Simulated scan of single mutants.
Amino acid sequence: MTNSIKLTTGSQFPTVEATLLDGTSVNLGKAHSGADWQMLVVYRGKHCPLCVRYLNLLEAHQQSLKDIGVSVSAVSADSKAQLAENMEKLTITYPIAYGLTEQQMKQLGLYISLPRSENETDHNFAEPGLFVINEQGVLQAVNISNTPFLRPELDVVVRGLSFVRSQDDYPIRGTLAY
Protein backbone atom coordinates (compact mmCIF):
# COMPACT_ATOMS: atom_id res chain seq x y z
CA MET A 1 0.00 0.00 0.00
CA THR A 2 1.29 3.45 -0.88
CA ASN A 3 0.42 6.83 0.53
CA SER A 4 -1.40 9.20 -1.76
CA ILE A 5 -2.23 12.85 -1.50
CA LYS A 6 -5.76 14.11 -1.25
CA LEU A 7 -6.47 17.49 -2.78
CA THR A 8 -8.34 19.73 -0.38
CA THR A 9 -11.22 21.77 -1.66
CA GLY A 10 -10.54 25.44 -1.09
CA SER A 11 -6.88 25.06 -2.04
CA GLN A 12 -5.13 26.12 -5.25
CA PHE A 13 -5.58 23.57 -8.02
CA PRO A 14 -2.17 22.36 -9.21
CA THR A 15 -0.86 23.21 -12.65
CA VAL A 16 -1.46 20.15 -14.80
CA GLU A 17 -0.53 20.32 -18.47
CA ALA A 18 -1.35 17.87 -21.22
CA THR A 19 -1.49 17.92 -25.00
CA LEU A 20 -4.40 18.21 -27.43
CA LEU A 21 -4.45 16.24 -30.69
CA ASP A 22 -3.30 19.32 -32.62
CA GLY A 23 -0.14 19.45 -30.46
CA THR A 24 -1.24 22.39 -28.32
CA SER A 25 -0.20 22.18 -24.67
CA VAL A 26 -3.00 23.18 -22.28
CA ASN A 27 -3.26 23.90 -18.56
CA LEU A 28 -6.16 21.64 -17.65
CA GLY A 29 -7.19 23.68 -14.61
CA LYS A 30 -7.75 26.89 -16.59
CA ALA A 31 -11.18 27.88 -17.82
CA HIS A 32 -11.56 28.55 -21.54
CA SER A 33 -14.14 29.57 -24.15
CA GLY A 34 -15.24 32.64 -22.18
CA ALA A 35 -16.01 30.74 -18.96
CA ASP A 36 -14.54 31.63 -15.57
CA TRP A 37 -14.82 28.14 -13.99
CA GLN A 38 -13.39 24.90 -15.34
CA MET A 39 -14.61 21.30 -15.09
CA LEU A 40 -11.87 18.75 -15.71
CA VAL A 41 -12.90 15.14 -16.30
CA VAL A 42 -10.20 12.49 -16.03
CA TYR A 43 -11.16 9.29 -17.82
CA ARG A 44 -9.52 5.89 -17.97
CA GLY A 45 -8.78 5.77 -21.71
CA LYS A 46 -10.06 4.43 -24.99
CA HIS A 47 -10.22 0.90 -23.62
CA CYS A 48 -13.13 1.87 -21.34
CA PRO A 49 -16.61 1.81 -22.93
CA LEU A 50 -18.12 3.42 -19.81
CA CYS A 51 -15.71 6.34 -20.26
CA VAL A 52 -16.72 6.79 -23.89
CA ARG A 53 -20.37 6.85 -22.82
CA TYR A 54 -19.67 9.35 -20.01
CA LEU A 55 -17.67 11.68 -22.27
CA ASN A 56 -20.46 11.62 -24.87
CA LEU A 57 -23.06 12.34 -22.14
CA LEU A 58 -20.91 15.23 -20.97
CA GLU A 59 -21.20 16.74 -24.45
CA ALA A 60 -25.00 16.83 -24.00
CA HIS A 61 -24.52 18.94 -20.83
CA GLN A 62 -21.85 21.23 -22.21
CA GLN A 63 -24.24 24.05 -23.17
CA SER A 64 -25.88 24.05 -19.73
CA LEU A 65 -22.43 24.27 -18.14
CA LYS A 66 -21.39 27.03 -20.54
CA ASP A 67 -24.57 28.94 -19.63
CA ILE A 68 -23.40 29.09 -16.00
CA GLY A 69 -19.79 29.95 -16.90
CA VAL A 70 -18.21 26.51 -16.62
CA SER A 71 -15.94 25.23 -19.39
CA VAL A 72 -15.23 21.52 -19.88
CA SER A 73 -12.05 19.59 -20.67
CA ALA A 74 -11.10 15.91 -20.45
CA VAL A 75 -7.81 14.03 -20.21
CA SER A 76 -6.41 10.51 -19.96
CA ALA A 77 -3.04 8.80 -19.92
CA ASP A 78 -3.62 7.52 -23.45
CA SER A 79 -1.11 8.22 -26.20
CA LYS A 80 -1.83 10.52 -29.12
CA ALA A 81 -2.57 7.49 -31.31
CA GLN A 82 -4.97 6.04 -28.73
CA LEU A 83 -6.83 9.36 -28.42
CA ALA A 84 -7.03 9.70 -32.20
CA GLU A 85 -8.54 6.21 -32.41
CA ASN A 86 -10.95 6.97 -29.55
CA MET A 87 -12.19 10.12 -31.31
CA GLU A 88 -13.97 7.83 -33.79
CA LYS A 89 -16.32 6.83 -30.92
CA LEU A 90 -16.64 10.27 -29.36
CA THR A 91 -19.10 12.95 -30.40
CA ILE A 92 -17.60 15.80 -28.41
CA THR A 93 -16.64 19.40 -29.09
CA TYR A 94 -14.85 20.25 -25.81
CA PRO A 95 -11.05 19.96 -25.56
CA ILE A 96 -9.72 16.49 -24.83
CA ALA A 97 -6.06 15.86 -24.05
CA TYR A 98 -3.73 12.91 -23.80
CA GLY A 99 -0.53 12.00 -22.02
CA LEU A 100 -1.46 12.40 -18.34
CA THR A 101 1.59 11.09 -16.48
CA GLU A 102 1.61 8.93 -13.35
CA GLN A 103 3.22 11.83 -11.49
CA GLN A 104 0.28 14.05 -12.51
CA MET A 105 -2.21 11.33 -11.52
CA LYS A 106 -0.61 11.20 -8.08
CA GLN A 107 -0.55 15.00 -7.88
CA LEU A 108 -4.33 14.95 -8.41
CA GLY A 109 -4.87 12.19 -5.87
CA LEU A 110 -6.31 9.81 -8.46
CA TYR A 111 -6.48 6.05 -8.17
CA ILE A 112 -4.11 4.38 -10.64
CA SER A 113 -4.64 0.95 -12.15
CA LEU A 114 -2.51 -1.58 -13.97
CA PRO A 115 -3.89 -2.91 -17.24
CA ARG A 116 -5.34 -6.42 -17.01
CA SER A 117 -3.59 -7.32 -20.26
CA GLU A 118 -2.01 -5.73 -23.31
CA ASN A 119 -5.40 -6.09 -24.98
CA GLU A 120 -6.79 -3.55 -22.51
CA THR A 121 -4.01 -0.95 -22.84
CA ASP A 122 -0.24 -0.70 -22.76
CA HIS A 123 0.19 1.62 -19.75
CA ASN A 124 -0.98 2.27 -16.21
CA PHE A 125 -4.02 4.54 -16.24
CA ALA A 126 -5.96 6.86 -13.97
CA GLU A 127 -9.36 5.90 -12.66
CA PRO A 128 -12.07 8.56 -13.01
CA GLY A 129 -11.87 11.99 -11.47
CA LEU A 130 -13.96 15.14 -11.81
CA PHE A 131 -12.57 18.49 -10.66
CA VAL A 132 -14.32 21.87 -10.65
CA ILE A 133 -11.97 24.84 -10.42
CA ASN A 134 -13.34 28.32 -9.73
CA GLU A 135 -12.30 31.70 -11.15
CA GLN A 136 -9.50 32.04 -8.57
CA GLY A 137 -7.93 28.71 -9.57
CA VAL A 138 -9.23 27.13 -6.36
CA LEU A 139 -10.65 23.62 -6.20
CA GLN A 140 -14.37 24.14 -5.70
CA ALA A 141 -15.55 20.52 -5.96
CA VAL A 142 -14.00 17.11 -6.53
CA ASN A 143 -15.12 13.53 -7.11
CA ILE A 144 -12.56 10.74 -7.32
CA SER A 145 -13.46 7.10 -7.95
CA ASN A 146 -11.56 3.85 -8.18
CA THR A 147 -13.90 2.41 -10.81
CA PRO A 148 -15.71 3.74 -13.89
CA PHE A 149 -19.21 2.87 -12.68
CA LEU A 150 -19.05 5.15 -9.62
CA ARG A 151 -19.13 8.53 -11.33
CA PRO A 152 -21.46 11.39 -10.42
CA GLU A 153 -24.59 11.73 -12.53
CA LEU A 154 -24.07 14.67 -14.86
CA ASP A 155 -27.65 15.94 -14.44
CA VAL A 156 -27.01 16.23 -10.70
CA VAL A 157 -23.62 17.87 -11.25
CA VAL A 158 -25.09 20.51 -13.57
CA ARG A 159 -28.01 21.26 -11.22
CA GLY A 160 -25.65 21.49 -8.26
CA LEU A 161 -23.21 23.79 -10.02
CA SER A 162 -26.12 25.93 -11.25
CA PHE A 163 -27.27 26.33 -7.65
CA VAL A 164 -23.78 27.14 -6.35
CA ARG A 165 -23.15 29.66 -9.13
CA SER A 166 -26.49 31.40 -8.42
CA GLN A 167 -25.55 32.06 -4.77
CA ASP A 168 -23.44 35.00 -3.67
CA ASP A 169 -22.18 33.36 -0.53
CA TYR A 170 -22.26 29.60 -1.03
CA PRO A 171 -19.16 28.21 0.72
CA ILE A 172 -16.74 25.68 -0.70
CA ARG A 173 -17.61 22.40 1.02
CA GLY A 174 -15.20 19.89 2.54
CA THR A 175 -12.38 22.28 3.36
CA LEU A 176 -11.45 20.69 6.70
CA ALA A 177 -8.58 18.29 6.04
CA TYR A 178 -7.41 15.73 8.58
Rank of each mutant, 00 (worst) to 15 (best):
T9C: 15
L154E: 01
T93G: 14
P152A: 08
V132L: 15
R165P: 01
V72E: 13
L7H: 09
P115K: 07
L150D: 06
A31E: 02
S64P: 00
L100M: 14
T8W: 00
N146W: 04
Q103A: 15
P49D: 04
A141V: 01
Q38Y: 03
P14Q: 04
M105Y: 01
V158A: 12
E88K: 11
G34R: 04
Y170W: 13
F131W: 12
G34M: 04
S145F: 00
L58R: 06
L100G: 09
K6E: 14
V52S: 15
Q12G: 00
T8V: 12
L55K: 13
L57T: 12
Q107P: 05
D78R: 11
Y98W: 15
E59V: 01
A81H: 05
K6A: 10
T9E: 11
L58H: 05
I5E: 07
S162F: 00
N119H: 03
E135T: 01
V138R: 14
S71T: 08
Q107W: 07
G160L: 03
I112C: 08
Y170P: 00
I144D: 03
I5R: 10
F131N: 09
Y178I: 05
K89T: 00
G129A: 05
V42C: 14
T121D: 03
V157H: 06
Q38L: 02
G99I: 08
Q107K: 15
F125I: 09
K46P: 01
S11I: 00
R159N: 10
L90C: 03
Y98Q: 05
D67W: 10
D155H: 03
I112Y: 11
L7G: 10
T101W: 11
R116E: 10
G29S: 14
D122P: 01
D78N: 10
S11R: 12
T175I: 12
V158W: 03
R165I: 00
Y94M: 11
R116S: 09
S145Q: 01
R173F: 11
K46I: 10
C51R: 10
L114F: 01
A126K: 08
R53I: 03
E153M: 07
Y43A: 13
G174H: 12
V138T: 15
S71V: 04
L28I: 09
K89Q: 13
F149T: 02
I92A: 09
